[in-house]
Simulated assay, not measured.
Amino acid sequence: MNLLQQIKNRRLALKIKQNEMPMRIGISRQQYQRLEAKGNPRLDTLTLVAQGLNSEIMLIPKEKMSVVLAALKNSDGNIPTEHQKPNQSLQKITVSEDPWKGLLEDEDEHGN
């Protein structure tokens, strides 16, 4: 799913009408409509849109994408660890402990 579709889906999930977004973020109606339809937004515009959708922009390394997506989809608040030895049982970290711990750092040679 491309970024523009994600923006639209987030807006719809929040039950925000397209014509309400320009007022929330301070751009013209035409500019916002163009952005959702086929836009190539500037970074500052994209930042405004993210704020208007109660969201954040993140740069996620490809090798960590599956872990981040799993964390976002997991409805019970537990996040499976990314690297597990074959004989380990599935370990989970509760979101209240630290939902992003280790997601963006590289492991050392010992798996730490």
Rank of each mutant, 00 (worst) to 15 (best):
N2H: 15
L3V: 14
L4N: 10
Q5H: 08
Q6R: 14
Q6V: 09
Q6H: 13
K8R: 15
N9F: 10
N9K: 10
N9G: 03
A13H: 07
M21G: 01
P22F: 06
P22K: 07
R24P: 02
I25L: 01
I25Y: 02
I25E: 03
G26M: 04
I27P: 00
I27Y: 00
S28K: 05
Q30Y: 02
Q31E: 11
E36V: 01
N40D: 15
L43C: 02
L43K: 07
L43N: 06
D44W: 15
L46W: 09
L46Y: 08
L48T: 02
L53A: 02
N54H: 12
S55L: 08
S55H: 07
E56F: 04
I57Y: 08
L59P: 01
L59R: 07
E63N: 12
K64T: 04
V68N: 04
V68C: 08
L69W: 05
A71P: 00
L72M: 13
D76F: 06
D76M: 09
D76S: 13
I79G: 00
T81Q: 12
Q84T: 11
Q84H: 09
Q84F: 04
P86A: 06
Q88G: 03
Q88H: 13
Q88R: 05
S89P: 11
Q91A: 11
Q91W: 07
Q91V: 12
K92D: 00
K92F: 12
V95D: 12
V95Y: 14
S96N: 13
E97K: 12
W100Y: 12
W100G: 03
K101G: 06
L103M: 13
L103S: 06
L104Y: 11
D106F: 04
D106C: 05
D108T: 00
H110C: 08
N112H: 13
